[in-house]
Simulated scan of single mutants.
Amino acid sequence: MTVPIISAYAGGFLIIMQAILMVLTGLHRAKSGINLGVGDDPVMERKIRRHGNLAENAGLFVAVLALAEMTGVTTQVIMTIAIVFVVVRLFHAIALSTEAGSHGAETGKIFVLARIIGAFGTLLSFLALGAFLLLNLM
């Protein structure tokens, strides 16, 4: 069994991203006086979803990536899936930083596209990782 080094790198990048989003959400809470929930603040809602969406996806991804790496899925496959996942999660976080990306406003269509890339890239990363893991175990 190998030590999952690529998974560790991916986990390192993702936990730093998670910490940054957490701090930005907390700072907005302090500034707006919203202690719990979103209040009537759409910016707070975006920041919570941006932070929460990464939390919902990153932990499971890193755990399964490490399993795939430890069970012998090729380094090239692991590295490719890890890089794609980290990049598309950045796209998603950037998209949810804007009203256009979160609510589909008419201006800023590039952010809508970034959110779509982030969401579908996450889905494809999950599916590819799961498929490679299962195929490797057969």
Rank of each mutant, 00 (worst) to 15 (best):
M1A: 15
P4N: 08
I6T: 13
I6V: 15
A8E: 14
Y9S: 13
Y9G: 11
A10P: 05
A10M: 05
F13N: 09
I16S: 12
Q18I: 06
M22Q: 11
L24T: 02
L24E: 11
G26H: 14
G26A: 14
L27M: 10
L27D: 05
H28L: 15
A30M: 15
K31Q: 07
D40G: 04
D41F: 04
P42H: 08
V43I: 15
R46F: 05
R46H: 03
H51F: 10
H51W: 08
H51K: 00
G52H: 07
G52D: 15
G52I: 10
L54R: 00
L54A: 05
A55I: 08
E56M: 04
E56R: 00
N57M: 13
N57K: 01
N57R: 01
N57P: 03
A58Y: 10
G59W: 13
V62F: 09
A63D: 09
A63N: 02
V64E: 04
V64F: 12
A66P: 11
A66G: 06
A68Y: 05
E69F: 12
T71N: 10
G72K: 09
Q76C: 07
M79H: 03
T80H: 02
T80K: 05
I81H: 08
F85D: 00
F85C: 03
V86R: 07
V87M: 04
V87C: 01
L90F: 12
A93D: 02
S97F: 13
T98H: 13
G101F: 03
H103I: 06
A105V: 14
E106S: 13
E106G: 10
E106R: 06
G108H: 07
L113G: 06
L113V: 12
A114Q: 05
A114R: 01
I116H: 02
G118F: 01
G118Y: 00
G118K: 03
A119D: 15
S125H: 05
A128Q: 08
L129N: 05
A131T: 07
F132W: 04
L133W: 14
L134Y: 08
L137W: 08
